[in-house]
Design a protein around this nucleic acid. Sequence first.
DNA 1: CGCAATTAGATTGCTCGCAATATATTATTT
DNA 2: AAATAATATATTGCGAGCAATCTAATTGCG
Lengths: 168, 168
Amino acid sequence: MIREQKLTPTDEAAPLQRLESQLCFALYSVTHALGRTYAPLLEALNLTYSQYLVMLVLWEGDDLTVKTIGMRLFLDSGTLTPLLKRLEHAGLIVRRRNPVDERELRICLTPEGDRLRERARHLPKTLACSMGRPEHELAALRDDLLRLRSTLMGALDGHRTDVSSEAP
Amino acid sequence: MIREQKLTPTDEAAPLQRLESQLCFALYSVTHALGRTYAPLLEALNLTYSQYLVMLVLWEGDDLTVKTIGMRLFLDSGTLTPLLKRLEHAGLIVRRRNPVDERELRICLTPEGDRLRERARHLPKTLACSMGRPEHELAALRDDLLRLRSTLMGALDGHRTDVSSEAP
DNA sequence: CGCAATTAGATTGCTCGCAATATATTATTT
DNA sequence: AAATAATATATTGCGAGCAATCTAATTGCG
């Protein structure tokens, strides 16, 4: 029932199938490594990584709907609704229905949420430092990844021909 | 209580704090885009992405402990234990205690688990195709990411006892 | 106007990922 | 040999992510 020895190791039979040869695993594992690098820094701000992303969006300009935040972060209400409730409970944001369109929930920063931006300002540089490379190399890698994201998202949408405003 | 207008937009006050300027978000979002690209392909195999990664490891050679699988994928038993139980329930692996050391759980492929490798063989090429770039470019990106992973993991391991909370 | 279609969020249920902790087994020390 | 430490896995609890579904509000169309 159980094979005692593998007869055709993946390395010989299908080299592209090796874990470490795959771009997807490189992405997966470096993303998680980065998450673990962020964790202790974000803990000082009482934020999870996903909450930090939402705050980054709001710091660029608040009074946004859940939908808008979701489009920027590629997340849906199933993820955002409970996350935003936690941010509200933490006193960083307020959630209010838009009186003009009661379907919409407008998300605004509280003064405390706004102040947190200062305490988080050093994070990008601190992280760049952990990556041990000159900024221009990191920027090049970032742009390469953003291009890849565009390609993948474009293939996913497929039928959806919304040509509104995606990152270049 | 709620600010009507932002006084110092992040773009001007702290350009490095912008969401789209950060490598971490590029990684985060492209990883999720890739996950969504994989989902329909893996659904045909009745695998989640994480389960697929475990199968990739086992296809390179099975009869591994949970610990070994975890070291290869950078995952711990809290993640792997329930995941492996699901793979066993799906009939793809068997979990047996090692009689020589009852602490260890040896994970082996079933014949069905082994056969699944053939049905999954096309995935790497299919995905590479979705990324719309020549293989050597994808390989270069992969190697760049693996270097970054090494840097980050090295910093994580190295400072386990050290308190590296200095902020510039 | 009235009613179907659309839209925005919320909810449910499942799987990950991880920290913290618990349990069982083996190795080491005294 | 008994006590202790180390190791491997399991369990618990929480916060994502995401598909599917639900509700309420708005829009569109006859």
